[in-house]
Design a protein around this nucleic acid. Sequence first.
DNA 1: TCGATACTAGACAGACCTGTCTGGTAACGT
DNA 2: ACGTTACCAGACAGGTCTGTCTAGTATCGA
Lengths: 186, 186
Amino acid sequence: MKTPARDRVLDTATRLFYAEGVHAVGIDRIIAEAGVAKATFYHHFPSKDELVRAYIQDQSRRAQNAAAGLRPSTPRANLLSVFDYMGEIGGSPAYRGCPFVNAAAEYPDPAHPVRQAVAEYRAWFRGLVHTQLVAEGHPDPERTADILMVLRDGLVIGCDLDDARELRPLIRDAVLRVLGDQPVAG
Amino acid sequence: MKTPARDRVLDTATRLFYAEGVHAVGIDRIIAEAGVAKATFYHHFPSKDELVRAYIQDQSRRAQNAAAGLRPSTPRANLLSVFDYMGEIGGSPAYRGCPFVNAAAEYPDPAHPVRQAVAEYRAWFRGLVHTQLVAEGHPDPERTADILMVLRDGLVIGCDLDDARELRPLIRDAVLRVLGDQPVAG
DNA sequence: TCGATACTAGACAGACCTGTCTGGTAACGT
DNA sequence: ACGTTACCAGACAGGTCTGTCTAGTATCGA
């Protein structure tokens, strides 16, 4: 218990929010499992919604760090490795879908800070994909980036609601079909 | 107020669950807005979770009725019209994403009856797409149906979290790319 | 040594949650 | 006429929710 209280709270909240949903997990449970006093929690986070926002922003930061950690190769290989990585994550037994999509489902108001944090993550991911498309000289980077975003969202849903093991082998195929230079095999 | 109490409850629950989320809406509010006594509610639905399941099953039934109402044409046209229809729905100002995906996000346990009702809808939709692919003689109907399912999920997310008006014009393009016989335009 | 900061335990308020219960009204088939 | 069923209003129980508050301990820099 030598890690700072704020970190323990955020780590515990991340685990519970992701596994069980935001509205399904109360502050009392978070502070109990984090081993933190209630006053300490409200010292670091002014409200539960701010904790949720911090959770989303932290997940976004981690995703960006993970993407930065991938050793850059050709734009095409970068794109494929991003989607392959999604398949790896999606195949984990603890996988419960995308934290951003799941959180957004619990915050219907697009103006809510949590939704805005989700929008920031999405803008970053879309930019990542778009940059690779431009770098590889794709003839239609705008539209293709949009469709790859759709593919991304569909994959995180599919890995959660369907069988990720069946989905994983076709990710590369799907990306290549969207990129448009790979005819469908008979 | 001459419609039966059960219908008023289900209609009100559908409206509120979809607009605000399942956990965010309490029984007290549903019965108040439906103009129904609490005992009447619990007479028709043994628990809130059963109401949620009825809501999901009702949405599934409506989707299947809507699909049955589309006048059948060529398999290719059927496929495109299904996805076009999704774009129409997704462009509505009241659109808040897919009720099945949103509900599943609030019920992490795959064994929960609500999740099973969602799974039944998904199996139906996947079968609908697969049938059309087989009918048009597609060389890879299994894998293509899976990817179109991914596309479906990505579209409902994108129409909710991004701008549906930007997404709609590229739906047909995305479907054709997945079907694999349409090269990307320069 | 002093003051600020981080932290702990836990009571408390006020609202909301699901689900049960009592008690009464009205329609309807037999 | 009678029993069943559907429906109403609303109290109630037991729990949980967020957020505030009191009161005290520990650490650490100046």
